[in-house]
Each structure stands twice: as C-alpha cells, then as structure tokens.
Design a protein around this nucleic acid. Structure first.
Length: 486
RNA sequence: GGUCCCGUGGUAGAGUGGCUAUACAGAGCUCUGCAAAAGCUCGUACAUCGGUUCGAAUCCGGUCGGGACCUCCA
C-alpha cells in the first residue's frame, strides 16, 4: 500500500517512495543521555517506531533505521564532572579522566534508555544502528574541515563557527522553518558572555576545550584546536557515515526543526555538497500533561519510571498516545491512560477470543481483508492512528468473535497480527492460563453443586467467599469459569 | 517583540459548510436465580462575540484561554 506523509520540507502531505527501492533509510534524533526518559521523550521515540513499522508492514519495505545517542554535550559534561550532585554510585567510580567519567554516566543512561524503549515495545532488532556521538569524532572533524574549505565556517578563539550569512548568500537557509529575518531574535535575551562568533545566528561546529572537560585534539591547517563537537554536527556526520546522503526520512520533535535540523541540513549542503540531507522530514508535536506544558516546576513532569511506579503499564501509555495524531498536541492525563487500559484490554480479549475460535490454517476471507484495508488505509495516510483504531473498534463492534467461522477467525487473527506489527500493544497468543488456587477451586465446586441444586442461599454465600478471595465465578450453561478480579 | 498552531460532549480524541467518528466513563434494556461477561439503546458537544451563507462547530475577523518556534529542550 502506498504511504503518504507530511513532509516539513514541502509543508504538505506527499506520497512516499524511497530513493533506493530496496530499502528505506531513516534517521531519528535520539536522546541526550543525561537522565532517564520522560513521557514527552517517549512520544518522540514512538513516532519513528510507528513510522518504521508502518513502512515495513503496510508499505512492505525493508527499513534501515538509525537512532543516534548524544553522549557529549553541556549537560552530560556538567553531570559527569567531578563533584556533580547527579553522579550515582551505580555509574562507577569517578577519576580525573573527564572523558572516562562522561562515558560512565552516559553508558548508565544509555542502558536506562534501552530499557525504556523496550517497555514501549520499541525493539532493538528494528534498529540498524544506535551510534554514539563520541564514536564519530573523526567524521565530524572531517566534515568541519569540508565546511571550512567551502568558506562557510571560521575559527575564532579555538572554536569553529558556521557562517550563516555567507551560507545564506549561496543557499537557502530556512528550508524547514520560516525565518523572520526582520524580527529575528528581537526581544530575545542573548547570553552576552557566551560567544565570540561574528553573528548571533552563527552556530558552533567545534567548541574550544574548557578546563576539566573532555576533549579531542583537532588539527585545522596545522593548528591544534582541542575541543569537542557542537550538537548539530553530530547528526550530520553520523547520518552520512551510516546511511549515506541523501537518505529518505529524518525524524524528530517539532522543537528540533529549528535550529537543529535546519543546521544539520545546512552543514550537509555546505560540507558534503548534498542539497538534501533527507527527502522527508517528519516531526512530532509535543504533549501536555493535564492541559499544561510538562515542567518540573508545575509538578506535572513524569518519567516512564514515575508511571511504572504508579502501577501504569507502559503499553497502556503507548496505546493512549496512539489515540492522538502525532502532529497534534496530545494531552496526557491519568484518566486517559486508565481509559486506554480498558480499551486495550477489550481488544486484547477480542484477540484471545478470535484465537480460540481459529484453526491452524491461515487462509484469507473477505472479512479479514476488509479489516486489513480499513486499518492500513488510515495508517498509510500520514500515520493516522486514531482513525486506524476507530476502524479496528468498528470492526470488532460489527463482528463479534462468536460470529466468526473458524476459517474467518484464522484469517482475521492473521490480520490482527499484522496490525499489531504496527501498533505493538497486543499479544497474539492464547489466553493466558489462569492458575486457580486449590481453596478457590474447591469452593467453586461446592458452589456449582449448590447452584445446580438451586440452593441459592448457599450459592450466594459461597460466591461471597470467592469474592473475598478476589475471584469472580462466571456461571455458564453447563460449566463455569473463574477469573481473578482486576 | 516577531511568526505560527490549537480550543469539540464527564474524559481522551477524529472529522466535516447541511448527513453516526471512535474509545473510556455514565444511564437504561436484553440475557441471566443473583452476579459477571456479552449484545442493544441513549445522553448534555463543537471556547466566546461578531460577520459571510439558504444553512457554520466547519469559512472570515475580534476577544479570551492553552501551546510551539525564534534560546538548551522530545
């Protein structure tokens, strides 16, 4: 099925097709590993996951998905410095080697990051690579050299800056973001002591070493400029090295459109002489919590760990996020997650029921292909997950599991499995076997006997006992089932 | 200061110039000894004030509110 995507570069929904028909190459801006992921981060990681899954399952493409890990920046340096309050014993023992300290801190949070991704069913097998910025320093330095050679950068006090004005004379700057040059930065406070650059809009490619910070030597025309890479250069160099330019899709949060992505693009044009770093740029909107911007000061800032500690299943959060389109602000609420949990359970139960009715065969049926088409059409339309879920619910409402023939059940199950290949919030499996404790089982037997004898008083007494033990007894026509109460 | 986006029922969240989103929660009904499950039905919605129109929640403008970017930020 053909996939359409909103492209920030063209500012409209375009039909997608990969440059190389054999595979889609996709790069996602990943986390800066100085802390555990919050739910806003999770939404940003959910978008590329949904996208790559949709490309595979709905589009039928092979996907090479790369998500970088930024392990060198102001925050990771700050938090890994000797004497940092953020240092935790689990990270190891700090030494006078600043780079080693940085590596310990970032390795610790990278590990946490992988755990958070896994809890969201974003699985490592889907990644072609998860490169660390510090492993690509030579490539970054080479790119900066190329940009210098092109005349779009200058060195100043040991740092190297990108010259936006010079670049803008020859190339479009502001392709992903409409820059209002008339009022650019008017009224915006600028840290006066921070820069030696020629223009406030110039951005740093290489930052001069500060005492006590990790650094790499960098030979520029015979002069050593010890320092570290700027943030934007990391993604340009890694995406080119791993995927090659231009590649198909670049993803990130809306906040990255400018300056991060705009600058990545400019660097690739200036240094690699590629007009397009990527042909499609896809950005997810932010989320709010209870209608307000998530912030620590408002007390509505939640990490995945916070939610898990509250007893929330991360997959319920994933499901809740699927109910909103990725390009709209999503209002995260605890009631919403509770509702999402109920809704997810309903579909999961349906899947169990269908599985029970299905045969081993995996044929096709009109019903199944209707379901497939209705859901896939929505996913193919700029990842419209809310409509995809609505289509799924409508199908379930119209086709109770009990109404399906075994062959239909088999084919429907196959389609549900395909759908779950994108949504990734269900399990396609037999209903888990409930382990019934002996005392519960024996009371149930007694109650069934009493009930069969129409001894309602005794029957109700025993039901109360089961309820007290946390079990619900469901009376059927000829038999009963027991299930633990939620 | 500039440039944008959004404001839908108890909640989350689609969509559309006149025709059921969907889900959760709630109410009623059916089925049941009772219950559970399941099925059926239902409810008060489109921030506000004007304008355009035969007709607007949907288009235009003002107001109020939330948010984004211009500055590290998913």
């Amino acid at each position: 099925m053909n996939i359409r995507l909103f492209n920030t570069l063209t500012k409209r929904i375009d039909a997608f097709s990969p440059l190389d028909p054999s595979r889609v190459r996709m790069y996602s801006c990943g986390p800066t590993v100085y802390d555990v992921a919050h739910i806003g981060n999770m939404r940003a990681f959910l978008l590329p996951d949904l996208l790559q899954r949709t490309l595979r399952v709905v589009g039928g493409f092979d996907v090479s998905w790369v998500m970088n890990i930024t392990d060198i920046d102001d925050k990771t340096i700050r938090d890994s410095a000797v004497g940092s309050e953020k240092w935790r014993p689990e990270m190891g023992t700090q030494t006078t080697d600043a780079l080693a300290n940085l590596k310990m801190l970032t390795a610790f949070y990278a590990e946490e990051f992988h755990r958070d991704l896994a809890s969201f069913n974003i699985i490592k097998e889907h990644f072609a690579a998860q490169p660390l910025a510090t492993d690509y320093i030579p490539q970054m330095q080479a790119l900066i050299n190329d940009i210098l050679a092109s005349g779009y950068a200058y060195a100043s006090d040991g740092s190297v800056y990108f010259n936006v004005a010079a670049y803008a004379k020859d190339h479009a700057y502001g392709r992903l973001f409409t820059i209002d040059t008339e009022h650019f930065r008017e009224g915006v406070r600028i840290d006066a002591d921070e820069y030696d650059r020629e223009s406030v809009s110039d951005f740093v490619l290489w930052k001069a070493r500060k005492e006590g910070e990790p650094y790499w030597d960098y030979n520029v025309n015979g002069t050593n400029l010890p320092g570290r890479p700027g943030w934007h250069i990391e993604c340009s160099a890694m995406s080119k090295d791993i995927l090659g330019l231009p590649f198909d899709i670049h993803t990130g949060g809306v906040d990255l459109r400018f300056p991060h992505h705009e600058d990545e693009l400019a660097q690739c044009t200036a240094g690699y002489h590629e007009h397009d770093q990527a042909t499609f740029w896809v950005h997810n909107e932010f989320l709010e919590v209870e209608g307000k911007k998530m912030s620590k000061s408002l007390g509505n800032f939640f990490t995945m760990r916070d939610l898990v500690a509250k007893g929330i299943d991360p997959l319920d959060v994933r499901f809740a996020m699927l109910q909103a389109h990725y390009r709209t602000v999503y209002n995260f609420t605890f009631d919403g997650v509770k509702g999402a949990s109920a809704a997810r359970t309903k579909i999961q139960d349906y899947i169990y029921d269908v599985k029970e009715r299905s045969t081993a065969s995996s044929g096709s049926s009109t019903l199944a292909s209707e379901l497939r088409t209705s859901v896939f059409t929505e996913l193919a339309d700029d990842l419209h997950t809310p409509k995809a879920l609505a289509a799924l619910f409508s199908f379930i409402g119209q086709h109770a599991a009990s109404s399906l023939t075994p062959d239909e059940a088999s084919s429907v199950l196959g389609v549900l499995s395909e759908i779950n290949g994108v949504l990734a919030v269900f399990e396609i499996a037999d209903r888990p076997v409930v382990i019934i404790p002996d005392d519960v089982a024996s009371i149930a037997v007694q109650r069934w006997t009493a009930r069969s004898a129409k001894d309602w008083a005794e029957s109700d007494r025993l039901r109360a006992q089961l309820t007290a033990l946390g079990w619900t007894m469901n009376d059927g026509k000829d038999s009963y089932t027991l299930e633990p109460m939620a």
